[in-house]
Nucleic acid binder design. Structure first.
Lengths: 225, 225
DNA sequence: GCTCCCCCTGAACCCGTGCTGAACAACTTA
DNA sequence: TAAGTTGTTCAGCACGGGTTCAGGGGGAGC
């Protein structure tokens, strides 16, 4: 678990970082808003402790920019007791929790744990097609609940087909999305993969459209042509 | 200890209630989602067993509404073996544990004990995965209750895998979350740690997904392919 | 019906990935 | 200082899997 501490008071910063390290986090720290913003923007943290009163760029602005840029890590904000309006602004900017100074490190740690755990259970997108379900995060494939072993490339290919199911996908389109750069065009790798996939998930799930490409379908839902 | 059983199959419902009563719980039961939701919303239960496939209101919705309303009791969800995605949705909605049908009542009782104990000793944030439990606070690991000695880095790694169990974690993601800043990218430290962890907690708990990374799984919950 | 071309399939090759044992370095503890 | 942990590196090995090739089958068009 990586944590970022953005706090301008050097003593408090060190104390927080130390506490988090002892709690098992890998901690980076920043002493002003600009540094903090940059670090949160470039490194994948699991949780962030963010003071709102910061030099160079205030905490609310930092948080707003992170959220605009799509950084979704949970953020716990620290506010002084008498700055009640800041707290509201912080929540509006996308904070997940807050704590007013002074506080006990125990309480901070408890809240951090809650945040990281909550974030851990987030969104798992599985694609369904007939009895076929594709767990894009776990890189697993199931047919009617039974796991199917697929290799990395097979999975990429099936995943792409599933994202565009019922559409005809040309060979070149598949190649472009499965492989990094250029690829030997006159090769039958794609066909081989299609064949292997058909063996694993059933012949009738991947239709071949002669001269055009392939199409992933739900075999039972398909009207008898 | 008060328990609520929400299960639409009358036979299974009675069987569960009976088993829990024998174990010393005061049990209420509901046969559909609406009743279950109302009861959980109005009575202070210590633990809830919730089937996901329910008439009138499905289990995930029930759970979501409870959590939105601030009901914090631990919830163990029951899923059919072939509804893998439901399990994930249940966790997202705030479930604490799950069990796939069919199951042994002994296992259900064991998990219930774990849940209530965890809820009782507040902030005992331990992550469970099969018989593997990870005490994030004490940095300790247990297999079926027996302590396992792991080093600091081993623990961080296992902890991260556990926070994202059933997800494939790439080597780089592991490195980024275990180590503070930069790290020699072409090093096989991760593999060595995986190997050592496997020796300690069992080979089948950490799956390697070739070309992608590793995945922490519950070895018993997974049906033999 | 015949032919061409596209597609499928089985097998083999070979490279990369990942696993393992051991040694080494850094650090802590007695 | 010596002994024991813990983290890291290295080299060798095994094998999984991506790629290629050759041959066969079957549509589509004439």
């Amino acid at each position: 678990m990586r944590a970022l501490v953005v706090e301008d008071d050097p003593d408090l910063n060190r104390q927080l970082s130390r506490a988090l390290e002892d709690a098992g986090y890998a901690v980076d720290s920043a002493l002003d808003g600009e540094d903090g913003h940059f670090m949160g923007d470039t490194e994948p943290y699991d949780v962030v402790v963010l003071d709102l009163g910061l030099p160079k760029m205030d905490g609310v602005t930092v948080l707003e920019r992170w959220r605009e840029a799509g950084r979704g890590f949970p953020v716990l904000i620290l506010t002084a007791r008498d700055r009640w309006s800041e707290k509201v602004a912080g929540f509006d900017a996308g904070a997940d929790d807050y704590l007013t100074k002074p506080f006990h490190t125990e309480e901070l740690l408890a809240r951090m744990r809650a945040l990281t755990r909550r974030a851990a259970g987030h969104t798992t997108s599985t694609i369904e097609c007939g009895g076929l379900s594709i767990d894009t995060r776990g890189a697993r494939v199931f047919i009617d609940g039974a796991p199917v072993k697929v290799t990395s490339h097979e999975f990429r290919m099936l995943s792409y087909l599933a994202h565009h199911q019922d559409r005809v996908i040309s060979r070149t389109e598949l190649v472009e999305h499965i492989y990094d750069q250029d690829f030997d065009r006159d090769s039958n790798t794609i066909e081989v993969f299609v064949g292997r996939l058909r063996k694993k998930i059933g012949t009738d799930r991947i239709e071949t459209v002669r001269g055009l490409g392939y199409r992933l379908v739900d075999p039972v839902a398909r009207p008898v042509s």
